[in-house]
Every structure is written in C-alpha cells, then in structure tokens.
C-alpha cells in the first residue's frame, strides 16, 4: 500500500526513527518519508496511509518541525474525512506531567479535523530501557496490517 511517514522533530531523533521505519516497510510497500514542516494539510490523500512519528518539546508541546503544520491545519480548517493515520510518540518520562504531550496533540489535531486513527498511539520513553525501534517496528507492522483491512487494500 501507499504509506507516507510524517515526522515532527526537534533534535532529529524522530527523523531517524521515521527513516528506520521506512527501511523496515519498504520491501512490501511504497513508502515516502516527509518532515511535517514540508507537508501541508491539503497534501493529505485518502488512498495513502499516514504513519506519524512525533516527539515532544518544551512543556509537552509539539516539536518545532510540527508547529507550522499544526498552525496550517487550524488556519485552513482542514477537512480530513477519509484520511487514515496512526501515531507513534517520542518523549521523556523525566518530564512526567507532559510526557509524550507532542504526539497526543498531533492525534487530537488529526481527529478534530475528521481523520480516522488506526490502532492505539504507542509511545517511547527516552529515559526507559527500550530502544525506540523495538517498539516502533512492531507498532508499524501492526497498524499497517490494520490499515490494509480498514482501507480495503491488499498489502
């Protein structure tokens, strides 16, 4: 299926993870990796499945590269009915009040504008024992399988 991995990053960790996920999926799918800073709400396409990989910055906020996208979504009053996405968050539980707040904001933004979330958001803790890809690769294969069913396309 057509997959676009959209990443929101501040230090580059989410970008690296997005590229690693793409490398995992590329054998079976047509995968593009795009920084949210280079993506407009009008670019969404109902035939593509969107994997959103997003970190958190400052006080539970969206990372810098996702902020223009969030502003454009709000300004355009984007209508994303029929758009399917899944979300993976990067955060640091040292900051427990706002842990993974960035990816939650992104999910809320997508759902508010009518997009359909596939699977549950999975989050990684930079202060925890797991490597991000050890959580992200199983998440990606699971949500892609779910999306294939939901979106009615064979992988």
């Amino acid at each position: 299926m057509m997959i676009t991995i959209l990443y929101g990053t501040e230090t580059g960790n989410a970008e690296m993870l997005a590229e690693d996920i793409a490398a995992e999926l590329e054998a079976d799918h047509e995968v593009t990796v795009t920084n949210l800073s280079d993506f407009a709400p009008t670019d969404f396409d109902a035939g593509t499945f969107y994997l959103m990989v997003c970190s958190t910055y400052g006080d539970g906020e969206l990372p810098a590269s996702a902020q223009p996208f969030a502003e454009a979504m709000a300004a355009a009053g984007a209508q994303l009915l029929g758009v399917h996405f899944a979300a993976f968050g990067l955060g640091d539980s040292e900051y427990d009040d706002t842990f993974n707040g960035g990816s939650q904001r992104l999910v809320d933004l997508m759902v508010t504008h009518g997009a359909t979330q596939i699977g549950a958001r999975v989050i990684h803790d930079a202060s925890g024992p797991d490597m991000a890809e050890d959580l992200a690769f199983p998440w990606a294969s699971e949500v892609v399988a779910l999306a294939c069913e939901t979106m009615g396309e064979a992988a």
Binding site: T11, G12, N13, M16, D92, E94, D125, A126, S127
Partner: peptide, 15 residues
C-alpha cells in the same frame, strides 16, 4: 548525568 533522555541524540551521531 540524570538527563539520559537528552543524551539519546548520540545514537544519531554514532551513525
């Protein structure tokens, strides 16, 4: 030393 999450960028640099 107690902000190991911030040091995670080292994984990018190692590449």
């Amino acid at each position: 030393p107690d902000h190991q999450g911030t040091k995670a960028v080292i994984r990018q640099f190692a590449r």
